[in-house]
Nucleic acid binder design. Structure first.
Lengths: 164, 164
DNA sequence: TATTGTTATACTCTATAACTATA
DNA sequence: TATAGTTATAGAGTATAACAATA
């Protein structure tokens, strides 16, 4: 069985459908986030990760960078914007003076809380309304392993700094 | 059954997995397209649509805009870059003097041909290697209806100009 | 009047490379 | 020496609004 040099039609249409759906969806949620919370998608990701995923509401810059932003300077830029808006604070880490710990503020949590209902509504209308519960679960089960695989085998430039 | 104001955990993880996979994949293919063809993803989409999807290799700006770029000025900008690079040509449409017909040149077809193998290779490694043939078909069958639904009910600003 | 496309403009985001400071 | 983060800088992409030309 030789390695194919082209894709079959299922692969092609899956690829384009994936990119189209994600592109349209991102566009829709970015508009909602901008209107209701003055947030970009990346800023929402950062804030949501701190406010919803982290028990302490804090993470080091390096840990935040993994999976949210592609370059460190980009993260510095976004964190700076969030800090200027009063939604996060930054302080040197206690255990390692090189590191910076980013923390959501109360104002940051308030923005997330304010933005979530409209966000959910967009997702419901745009993404989930054509999908049954079983469909959604299938989609999840298909995509989560792909994400894990991609994160495990990063495309060179997305690797950690030590790989360069 | 009242309308929920939050998402269940399958929906949440499907949403984030979708956005993460598409973001990582876009990042990977953009790098490949830039290295091997000096193309951005949008430029690749435009060129591929003309070279692969259109029987004549030509389309009106308005038709190109549908589903590729979000604003008309953005399409003008990208078409200008492609024209400057000699990959497309633009001419007034014969039937409607207001319209502009964009056509792939031979050089444009050559760039697509040069870029495709590496593109397929990235897709194979990043997206398809964790998916069986049946998985790929399932993914396609789940996402194509979502795309159709999104295109049918655009999120306001992505609509055609006459809707504004 | 409505539609097609372009232009001027401003802004956001991202990346590279050089730099500082700590481990 | 290696790692964490910042800064300066430059470039790409996008959107809005005003505009010209055609239907």
């Amino acid at each position: 069985m030789p390695a194919q040099t082209s894709l079959d039609s299922d692969q092609l249409s899956a690829y384009f459908a994936l990119m189209d759906v994600a592109g349209l969806l991102k566009h829709a949620v970015e508009q909602q986030l901008r209107e209701e919370g003055d947030l970009s998608y990346v800023q929402f990701q950062l804030l949501a990760r701190l406010a919803l995923d982290s028990p302490t509401g804090s993470e080091r810059m390096t840990d935040l960078a993994d999976g949210v932003v592609y370059s460190r300077s980009g993260l510095t830029y976004q964190a700076g914007l969030l800090e200027k808006a009063g939604l996060v604070s930054r302080a040197p880490s206690v255990d390692d003076e090189r590191s910076v710990t980013v923390s959501v503020t109360d104002a940051g949590r308030a923005v997330i809380a304010r933005v979530i209902p409209g966000h959910v509504e967009v997702l419901r209308q745009q993404l989930f309304s054509p999908l049954s519960g079983a469909d959604t679960q299938s989609l999840r089960d298909l995509l989560v392993p792909v994400r894990d695989h991609m994160r495990a085998a990063p495309p060179r430039s997305a690797g950690s700094r030590r790989r360069r």
